[in-house]
Design a protein around this nucleic acid. Structure first.
Length: 732
DNA sequence: GGGGAGTGTCATACC
DNA sequence: AAGGTATGACACTCC
């Protein structure tokens, strides 16, 4: 992490210096928002090849800003820009495209040196990243090495059906959004959809869940809802189209793969992983959706991306564009082809856009984790053609490059999750809890404290009732204990008693009711400060009139009279009624006295039937009022607790997902080690004549007892197929 | 003037 | 059975 920061910092410095040297003002935000790389890398993870397109996007966007393509500072410039975007992505769920680093480093020399290292990781990257989406027009088949790698990929079981690009797209892209966009195309697809009902249904699920969940996220095309999975399609496309046809020797690669991949891929439900990641994104979307999504969705009609795309609908996703092409300035046709908006646009007959079909487990596998695992782990030298020419010492197929690139991507994936998700969301949530702002404040302070005080007050109410009932001096004890919700301070009591023991001070009693004997708690309840309703609407006019009659023979309207008027206004309906009916005791007592004391009190006075009825109504209503308040507080408390539980669960889920990613990374490293060992052991094997075994004819088989056997490839292939069937059968 | 929030009240069920 | 509590629904006021 520290090294990464240092790296990025240096990049930023370079970027700044370069900008000043170039003298070009660059609107970084425009770049970043128009390219939208992050989620793709997050999902694709270790597929360094796909960052190539981003690289070209960088260059393409550069065009619009007037930097000459031949500028010698271009690479530095782009590097700086990429680093800047990485920095910016640190606080979000954006994965810096470190894959670009690997690709760039090895891609540049590829034009001139590729032939010298046909089996290196370079071949892997260039094949998957450059050749993959080569459209029909683009036709330039790249080196045989790349083709061979495509075959390798296919053998990994992570390859889409070996069909033409169009058909592949038809198979994969069943997105509803696309149908909306392209009705004619949709009509054509309907027949296909019928045949692919299962896949379509599953995709509907995706459209309903994934797209909806991610509609707020950065890379979701709000119109088609496919853009987010469209990150996969990019890889699917690359992988699929990198494989023009059935492998020449499928058995060979299958057998080769079997010891390394079978059994390790199956335990993981990659679709589930994908959905988990989508969950992460979804949660992340909760954090960043507002700003970025708007930027994305509100692209102006004249958006150069869409415009460019509409002008050349058949333009393939030109991931195929090589660095060489880009450096020559041929970037105009490569416009931001990975932009989600562009990818989501309907392109009739286009074989390049391959929106993800989750139902296509193969494609899905090829897109996430395992694909990358498989693809990265596949030893290029195991390719028969390449291997036959290889020396006796099998070169490390992936080498440090692959290790580095892959681990970079994985670590970036973690970084994205940790930096983008964890701090932004989890810490934010924690901050919310800690700072207790907003609802959390209410939750921790007002509701809970209220509820606690409420509970205590309730208990104190009952206890006060019991204690009051047990105590001899009911009145005093009652006043001091403050009948729950209607307690008044001594001043109020004095006023009440001075006024003939009628009513209480509603304004203050509201506070008391809310704070339950502790008005000081109101300072913690800002949302209660404005509460000052006067619910006297149901007061009987007669009662009001009688109650509001100014005291006779008072010539002086002094402060006392004003105070009396104020109190009159503050009195509740029942208080006015009680006053009108000349009830000889306060409503507080009526309401809060224990039954025994209440009855005792009633027995002390000669009350009419109307008075008794009113008193009982007052008591009933008063108690019900408190009950309603308690009920509402409980309700609010429940909601807040549920909210907190949800947040806790979300945090737990994020943590579990991070752990899952960590496990996947460990698994990948282990696979890599196994692969290295495999290559080392196989490369050292010699037949009776001292010659190395051909990987096309032999393979190493791991036995259950830990031993390693050299067996013919055909046999290994058969075993591999058997192992492939087992998980399927288990699922059934 | 409409609508949300807060509150009181009623009816009802339950303890 | 009476009293108390819980809660949905409604009405009302205030903002």
């Amino acid at each position: 992490m520290l090294s990464l920061k240092k790296y990025l910092t240096e990049g930023l410095l370079q970027f700044t210096i370069l900008l000043s040297l170039i003298g070009v003002r660059v609107d970084v935000d425009t770049y970043l928002t128009s390219q939208l790389p992050p989620l793709r890398e997050i999902i694709l993870g270790p597929s360094s090849a796909y960052t190539q397109t981003q690289f070209h996007n960088l260059r393409n966007t550069l065009d619009g800003y007037g930097i000459h393509p031949k500028s010698i500072d271009l690479d530095n410039y782009f590097t700086a820009r990429r680093l800047l975007s990485q920095v910016r992505a640190l606080d979000r769920f954006q994965v810096p495209t470190t894959e670009v680093n690997a690709w760039l480093v090895h891609r540049d020399p590829e034009g001139s040196v590729s032939g010298s290292q046909p089996n290196s990781g370079l071949a892997l990257e260039s094949s998957s990243g450059l050749q993959d989406v080569t459209g029909p027009d683009n036709g330039v088949r790249e080196s045989e090495t790349e083709q061979g790698f495509g075959e390798d990929l296919e053998d990994l079981g992570a390859v889409a059906p070996p069909v033409s690009g169009d058909l592949t797209k038809e198979d994969i892209d069943l997105g509803a959004g696309r149908e909306v966009f392209d009705y004619s195309h949709r009509q054509k697809e309907q027949d296909v959809d019928k045949n692919l009902r299962d896949g379509g249904e599953q995709e509907d699920t995706w459209a309903g869940e994934g797209a909806e969940a991610l509609a707020r996220n950065l890379l979701v095309d709000g119109e088609t809802g496919e853009s987010f999975p469209a990150q996969f399609p990019a890889e699917v496309a690359s992988i699929t189209e990198a494989v023009p046809s059935e492998s020449e020797s499928p058995a060979l690669q299958n057998s080769l793969l079997s010891p390394l991949l079978t059994g390790t891929e199956s335990p993981f439900d990659l679709e589930q992983q994908w959905q988990d990641l989508m969950s992460i994104m979804e949660m992340q979307a909760m954090e960043v959706n507002t700003s970025t999504s708007e930027v994305l969705y509100n692209a102006p009609p004249g958006d150069p991306l869409s415009t460019n795309y509409s002008l050349a609908p058949n333009t393939p996703i030109n991931q195929n564009v090589s660095l060489h092409q880009a450096s020559l300035g041929g970037c105009s046709q490569d416009f931001s082809l990975f932009s989600p908006e562009v990818e989501s646009l309907p392109v009739a007959g286009s074989s390049t856009l391959l929106p993800l079909v989750p139902s296509n487990s193969t494609s899905l596998n090829s897109t996430f984790g395992s694909t990358n695992l498989a693809g990265l782990f596949f030893p290029p030298q195991l390719n028969g053609t390449a291997n036959d020419t290889a020396g006796p010492e099998l070169p490390d197929p992936l080498g440090g490059l692959l290790d580095e690139a892959m681990l970079d991507e994985i670590s970036l994936m973690d970084l994205a999750i940790e930096e983008g998700f964890n701090p932004v969301q989890a810490s934010q949530l924690e901050e919310e809890f800690d700072s207790d702002s907003g609802l959390s404040l209410d939750s921790s302070h007002s509701p809970s404290s209220l509820s606690s005080s409420e509970g205590s007050s309730s208990s104190s109410s009952s206890s006060s009732s019991s204690s009051a009932s047990s105590s001899a001096s009911s009145s005093s004890s009652f006043s001091e204990e403050g009948a729950v919700g209607y307690s008044s301070d001594s001043e109020t009591l004095d006023l009440e008693e001075a006024e003939g023991a009628v009513g209480y001070q509603p304004e203050y009693s509201k506070f008391c009711r809310m704070s339950y004997q502790d008005p000081s708690q109101l300072s913690c309840l800002p949302y209660l400060e404005h509460v000052g309703h006067n619910h006297t609407y149901n007061m009987a006019p007669s009662a009001l009139d009688s109650a509001d009659l100014p005291p006779p023979t008072t010539l002086k309207k002094g402060s006392k009279e004003k105070q009396a008027d104020f109190l009159d206004k503050q009195m509740s309906r029942d208080e006015h009624r009680a006053r009108a009916m000349k009830i000889p005791f306060t409503n507080d007592k009526i309401i809060n006295l224990p039954v025994e004391e209440f009855n005792e009190l009633l027995s002390k006075y000669q009350l009419s039937e109307a008075q008794l009825s009113l008193i009982r109504d007052i008591r009933r209503r008063g108690k019900n009022k408190m009950a309603a308040q308690n009920c509402r507080k409980r309700k609010l408390d429940t909601i807040l607790n549920l909210e907190r539980d949800v947040e806790d669960l979300q945090r737990d889920k994020a943590r579990l997902l991070r752990e899952k990613v960590e496990f996947l990374r460990s698994l990948r490293q282990m696979k890599q080690k196994v692969q290295s060992l495999y290559q080392e052991v196989f490369g050292r094997l010699r037949d009776e004549n001292g010659r190395p075994y051909s990987p096309s004819q032999y393979a190493l088989q791991y036995a259950g007892d830990g031993s390693v056997l050299l067996i013919p490839r055909t046999m290994a292939d058969q075993q591999a197929r058997r192992q492939e069937r087992k998980p399927k059968d288990r699922r059934k």
